[in-house]
């Protein structure tokens, strides 16, 4: 088995950078368009930057808290969840990072996720449904996958991606509204062109943003599986957990939210190519196969 993690961190950082500039370009472009509608491109850029900064500040300071509270995660008491705490601690030692906070989601569904901008301020959460179904070895595999996301900075990448998609959606919405009602008086043809551009943008821009985000999410799942195998030196544990998940997993959380799907250890499995384009995770079968080859 090859140790890949350090290169993966570097590669991931570069990818985050490229993603960041690409997305930021789209945000600025939309800003310029907003400005044109308002009569001054500079105003539009200013609006775009302000929206982006506000979203970033929220994600930076509250991203972890928001993700945890949206899923209904509660801090797992050490006394009650002794084994879970121990497993998280063991894996963080293996990964050489400080122990993430441990959260529990009281839910019969089976899933787990990690969040946080940096390893020193991160959290892993697991549903009681999953926790009760796994033995210690499988639990170690699942936790290793989540800790790998933290170690490889995937949680940060996805948080930034989320902010940028959010900014794009808000800007497209602004453009759409303004092109409908018009900021200034202008002739009918101009109004029509702007309306068409607005409609195309509101449909297309968020979609492109979403697709970029999903593509990254899928790639990161394989990397996290590989890193989990390296951390535990036991790909079998995670493979067996994924097997259990894929046979018993019917939906993500009861209070399912599409926006959070990419965070979980497993996404809904589907055969349709269109749904495959929108999936957050690679097919579980494929992940298990790769783990078995390690």
């Amino acid at each position: 088995m090859k140790r890949i993690s350090f290169d993966e961190v570097a590669k991931n950082n570069v990818k985050t950078g490229i993603l960041f500039f690409l997305f930021f370009g789209i945000v600025l472009g939309l800003g310029v368009l907003t400005g044109i509608i308002l009569g001054n491109p500079n105003t539009g850029i200013l609006i775009a930057v302000v929206i982006f900064l506000i979203y970033s500040a929220i994600a930076w300071f509250k991203g972890k808290t928001i993700a945890l509270s949206l899923t209904g995660a509660k801090k797992a008491p050490q006394q009650q969840y002794q084994q879970l705490h121990n497993v998280v601690e063991e894996i963080s030692i293996s990964a050489g990072i400080s122990k993430p906070d441990v959260y529990i989601i009281e839910d019969t569904s089976m899933n787990a996720f990690a969040t946080g901008l940096k390893p020193e301020d991160s959290a892993v959460a697991i549903t009681t449904g999953l926790l009760n179904k796994l033995d210690r070895e499988e639990l170690t595999g699942v936790i290793a996958h989540e800790v790998a996301h933290v170690k490889l900075r995937d949680t940060r990448t996805m948080l930034i991606a989320g902010v940028l998609v959010g900014s794009i959606i808000l800007l497209s919405d602004i453009i759409f509204r303004f092109s409908l009602f018009g900021g200034r008086e202008r002739d009918g043809r101009m109004q029509l062109i702007l309306l068409i551009v607005g409609v195309v943008l509101i449909l297309l821009a968020p979609l492109i943003g979403q697709l970029i985000k999903l593509a990254i999410s899928r790639k990161r799942e394989f990397a996290a599986d590989a890193e989990a195998a390296t951390l535990t030196r036991n790909p079998g544990g995670l493979a067996s957990a994924l097997q259990k998940l894929s046979t018993q997993h019917k939906k993500t959380l009861d209070n399912e939210s599409q926006a959070l799907q990419h965070m979980y250890i497993i996404g809904p499995d589907t055969k349709s190519w269109l749904k495959n384009l929108f999936r957050t995770h690679p097919p579980t079968e494929q992940r298990i196969e790769r783990l078995k080859e390690m």
Binding site: R3, Q82, N86, V87, E89, E90, I93, S94, G96, R233
Partner: peptide, 27 residues
């Protein structure tokens, strides 16, 4: 039972700490 869990966890921690040390030494 709790102590048994603590001890087996500590065994794992020792093993992982050594593994992490060796990986870092190699690098």
């Amino acid at each position: 039972q709790q102590l048994q869990e603590e001890i087996s966890s500590t065994e794992n921690r020792v093993a992982y700490a050594r593994q992490n040390y060796n990986d870092l030494v190699m690098k």
